[in-house]
């Protein structure tokens, strides 16, 4: 099974721009399935990015974040070839993480 996380991090001078996409239903709890039953809420609560042992970005998300969520941010102090560790945990306690290289 492939990772749920796709990441693009590009170092440009002192700033690194990071984009990430996570495969996740982000069910809001307000949508019904084909049988008319409410699909229970299922969404990522925390998505975290670490570089060199430091948290460089945290997303706290609610059920209003779109399916297969996306985020973009920038931070300083990283170089091409550095590792970026990405992890998430959702409201059901499921989680995933990945180590990606900054390009």
């Amino acid at each position: 099974m492939a990772s749920t996380i796709r990441m693009r991090a590009i170092a440009n001078g002192e700033t690194t721009e990071v984009q990430a996409l996570v495969q996740h239903p982000m069910d809001s709890g307000f949508v019904k399935d084909s049988k008319g039953n409410l699909i229970p809420p299922h969404y990522i609560e925390v998505l975290e990015f670490q570089h060199a042992g430091k948290t460089v970005f945290t997303a706290f998300w609610g059920p209003a974040v779109a399916k297969d969520p996306y985020v973009k941010f920038s931070f300083k102090g990283a170089q091409k070839g550095d590792d970026l560790i990405i992890s998430w945990v959702d409201n059901k306690g499921q989680s995933d993480s990945v180590v990606g290289k900054i390009q």
Partner: peptide, 17 residues
């Protein structure tokens, strides 16, 4: 904006595999 990192990336990766 969305196509810069599209949600269909996962389907595309699955198709490639």
């Amino acid at each position: 904006e969305i196509d810069a990192f599209p949600p269909y990336q996962f389907a595309l990766d699955k198709g490639k595999e």
